[in-house]
Design a protein around this nucleic acid. Structure first.
Ligand code: MN
Ligand code: MN
Ligand code: ZN
Ligand code: ZN
Lengths: 136, 136
DNA sequence: AGATAAATGAAAATGATTCTCATTATCATT
DNA sequence: AATGATAATGAGAATCATTTTCATTTATCT
């Protein structure tokens, strides 16, 4: 018995999709769906919040945007190879442009096939370091 | 982001707390609060699910257990230094006992004070690799 | 244009987690 | 052991980010 092949659904290019991706790519920040919605809705007042949710997830699955699994989830229009640091004091997400290589062979030895990895770093951002010093 | 007040509250040792921590430490797995509840409730049928949630989070903040920020969140009674790999096919979480060092100085150069980091690896577990091959 | 298949938007549902609050347990002091 | 102070518990309600449902609209193919 033949098992149904993994979905071959054709993705359609809608105005909403284009707008959402463009606006996300313009940003240097890592917005939540809600935050991006507030920007996008100014250019298309008819757009629905769930369309933002839906498309961000689609973009992520297509490898078009990055996803940061905070709560709420944040997305990243910058696909260059980098990591993120979350400030434990103010919650801000910053970019960390340096690389920690993981060797696929090491993972293979442990019985797994490596597909991807993310490094989630926590720390204090510069302004929170200053704030902390002032309070001392 | 909520700024944590320098709490001076004394933590009391309750039977529930001890039971939850002991049962978690017995496991080799990475249970959710709900999964651990199902185990714990057999030994204390009066215990409430929210007590599991509350204490797991307390243990995490005390550095007694590890936390894996999947959805739902998973906890780890094993505090030895290791990373986790999530199988993208079956969702299982496996332990990866090798180390990827991050240099605090590198982070400092970028204006941050490093506090911690986690590496979240994704891939295929051995049984899902086999399953995939069989289907070819 | 007409067919068909996917995307949208509004509203409702979901579900993991957190909150509230009355009650109970723990612990340091008498 | 009794007391008092305070933290923890348990039940249920609330929260809220995200997902689902479904009627309608839109994009794309022939
Ligand atoms: Mn980034
Ligand atoms: Mn582990
Ligand atoms: Zn900060
Ligand atoms: Zn698997």
């Amino acid at each position: 018995m033949r098992v149904e092949k993994a979905s071959s659904t054709k993705i359609k290019n809608t105005k909403q999709r284009e707008l959402i991706l463009n606006e996300l790519r313009k940003l240097m920040s890592h917005p939540t769906a809600e935050e991006l919605y507030k920007i996008v809705v100014k250019k298309n007042p008819k757009i629905g919040l769930c369309t933002i949710y839906r498309n961000l997830e689609t973009f992520y699955k297509q490898g078009l945007v990055g996803k940061i699994c905070t709560k709420p989830v944040r997305y990243d229009g910058d696909m260059s190879k980098h990591s993120h640091i979350r400030c434990t004091s103010c919650g801000k997400i910053g970019d960390i442009f340096f690389n920690v290589p993981i060797n696929p062979v090491e993972i293979q030895k442990l019985g797994y096939k490596l597909q991807g990895y993310k490094i989630e770093i926590t720390g204090l951002c510069s302004s929170c370091i200053k704030k902390q010093k002032r309070e001392e």
